[in-house]
Amino acid sequence: MVRGKAVSQADRERIRVFHDDDHLSLEQINSKTGIPLRTIQNLISSGSYSQQSQKRGPKPKINRKGESRIKRYFRNHRKSGHRKVPDLLQLDVSPSTMLRTMKRMQQLTEENSQKVPIVFTDEKKFRYDGPDGYNFYWQLAEDKKNNEMFSKDYNMYNGVMVHLAISDAGILSCDRITGKLNSDKWETLVCDSVLPSIHVQHSTDFIYQRDNASPHKGKETCEHMEENGFVFMNWPSLSPDLNPVENIWSLLVRRVYANGVSYVDDDELWEAIQHEASRVTVEEVQSYTKSYRKRLCLCLLKKGGYAQ
């Protein structure tokens, strides 16, 4: 069946004037406008001759306001099914429509979460004579006066504390920390040194990961940084093996202390760390950062147990 031409707003206004003001009959309006009698009758009976014509096609089942209500509901009720939600939220939709909407919203959420880059960070102290695992050093038997064990590091406080930040773009920053690390010093380090490097690679849209060390968890510090645009990742306690930075530390340690080399002061050690950090390629970092989600799935599968 061929659809007739839609009545324009000007013709609707003419019909209104002829009917309401001039009190003409339907036949008289038909003779003056040329519009079919049935159309004129429908417009007058429905009272729509003075309204804008509506868009054709079905209305959306769930609009944006409804989707927002669904999101807020599932934040607190994650186990609710798609059959109960329409009645609970008073949405006039079928369960199948609700299920399709939930799947589409979940897909959009997963896509958005994958697009937002994650910045992984950690601190580590490099010592003069090797990594922390080297607890002792060799000594000739005739030079040893007693049976006590000698520490490999002559002074346990000698060394360089390093803060490292990585993402899919590679190593973002490698900074030296002097003195004791507290909340104020950590905030200054991140905002002044790390944040500009993040903005260069990822603009202002990123998620910042930090462990649960006390300098990172200061209430005032975190609130102030969140006001400045930081979005922190909730990190489980005692989970260093989930952080890809640990793999980069292992890579740097092998290269900094290659062939059993040792260092005499902080400056020499820091220069070696900077040199080796600059040699770490983006591909090497991505081999660990892109496996982050697989690590989480494997950790859940093993229920926190050992996983190779």
Rank of each mutant, 00 (worst) to 15 (best):
V17N: 13
D22M: 15
E27W: 14
Q28R: 07
I29S: 04
K32D: 14
G34R: 11
P36F: 00
T39P: 03
I44N: 05
I44A: 08
G47H: 06
S50Y: 08
Q54D: 04
K55C: 09
K61D: 05
R64M: 09
R69G: 13
I70V: 13
K71M: 06
R72G: 07
Y73P: 07
R75M: 01
K79L: 07
P95A: 06
M105S: 15
T109S: 08
E110K: 02
S113D: 04
V119M: 08
F120D: 01
D122M: 02
D129T: 05
G130W: 09
E142D: 03
D143L: 13
K145D: 10
F150P: 00
S151G: 09
M156T: 09
N158C: 02
L164C: 11
G170I: 11
L172Q: 12
D184Y: 03
K185G: 04
E187K: 15
S193A: 03
P196W: 08
V200N: 11
Q201E: 11
H202Y: 13
Q209S: 14
Q209T: 09
T221R: 12
H224Y: 04
E226S: 13
G229W: 07
F230A: 10
F232W: 01
W235M: 15
P244S: 04
V256F: 01
V256T: 01
S262Y: 00
L269S: 08
E271M: 05
S278T: 12
V280W: 01
T281W: 06
E284V: 09
S287H: 10
R293T: 04
L296M: 12
L300T: 02
L301R: 10
G305E: 01
Y306I: 06
